[in-house]
């Protein structure tokens, strides 16, 4: 299967943080949700993927090419949403359109302005007067108005109300209807990821904990609620993480490895993420 991007054994060390042997790849035509706590390494990984941060070692490829060797034509096919609008605060939609139509050969002014109007973004207002939600919508409009094939979205839906988030998720789902289009998106709103993602990658303390197909993930794990005595008898190799109260234990377990009668719940992505960082006692 052709890959939209491929990260192999990526390492990057800072004074107080390190990405350790990160491996991540996404086949074309799919959406990958990238989850992890603040400071876990999501933005650093995305920065390395996009060539904004230089890796210490490892290989990072987009469309089969090393990021450092991407040509202007390759970059035309990448749309990105990072934190904040990347234009001076006094810019208006018209200014942004003027700049970007002179930067991207594939820039579609009509599409940009119609997306902005669909999102009710005021044409004459300066960006500095936009709300957080408006800025997020503007960033999405910028990212998809030059017909990209790969979208890299870092917290693109944060600060948006559920109605607009849903609208954006619809746009993203439409985007991947073309089998050459792919999305890597990080978000703390895991319910959004559950709605549209095919794969979930979880990073913790700079290391990838898992990269799984979303459905497989939810079939592989289960959340069980047990009395402390029951938990004591449980095979600990089956336990991924557990939360303890005075009387009970809730645990994320590998379904295949447990036997006996337990009430098991299908875990959400958030459950899996939370339990994965909880220590097993």
């Amino acid at each position: 299967m052709e890959k939209a991007f491929e990260i192999v054994n990526l390492n990057k060390t800072y004074k107080d943080f390190a990405l350790k042997d990160v491996n991540l790849s996404l086949p074309k035509g799919y959406i990958m949700g990238f989850v992890g706590a603040n400071g876990a390494g999501k933005s650093t990984t995305m920065g390395c993927l996009l060539g904004m941060i230089k890796a210490d070692s490892g290989s990072v490829k987009i469309f089969g090419k090393e990021t450092a060797k991407l040509t202007a034509t390759d970059k035309e096919k990448i749309g990105v949403v990072m934190e904040g609008v990347p234009f001076a605060p006094m810019f208006t939609l018209k200014d942004i359109n003027t700049v970007l139509k002179n930067v991207y050969t594939s820039w579609d002014s009509k599409k940009f302005l119609s997306l902005c109007s669909r999102f009710n973004l005021p044409e004459k207002k300066q960006i500095k007067d936009y709300s957080t939600g408006m800025r997020a919508k503007l960033n999405i409009s910028i990212a998809i108005s030059h017909s990209p094939q790969l979208l890299v979205l870092d917290e693109a839906t944060s600060g948006l109300d559920p109605v607009v988030r849903d609208e954006i998720l619809d746009i993203l789902q439409d985007f991947v209807c073309d089998e050459n289009h792919s999305i890597l998106m990080s978000s703390h709103i895991t319910s959004d990821l559950e709605k549209i993602c095919d794969y979930i990658a979880f990073i913790n303390n700079g290391s990838i904990v898992f990269v799984e197909n979303k459905d497989t993930l939810q079939e592989k794990y289960a959340v069980v609620h047990l009395a402390k005595e029951q938990y004591a008898q449980l095979d600990k190799t089956a336990v991924v993480g557990a939360k303890f109260t005075d009387y009970n234990v809730s645990a994320l377990v590998l379904k295949d490895k447990i036997s006996g009668e337990y009430t098991a719940e299908k875990p959400s992505v958030e459950d899996i993420m939370l339990y994965c960082v909880k220590e097993v006692k």
């Binding site: 202007a72 970059k75 990347p86 001076a88």
Partner: peptide, 18 residues
């Protein structure tokens, strides 16, 4: 200073320009 405050130079790294 404008570019720095809105992190334009970071964004520019993914634009089709060298």
């Amino acid at each position: 200073a404008y570019d720095e405050s809105c992190r334009f130079n970071r964004f520019a790294q993914i634009l089709p320009i060298t």
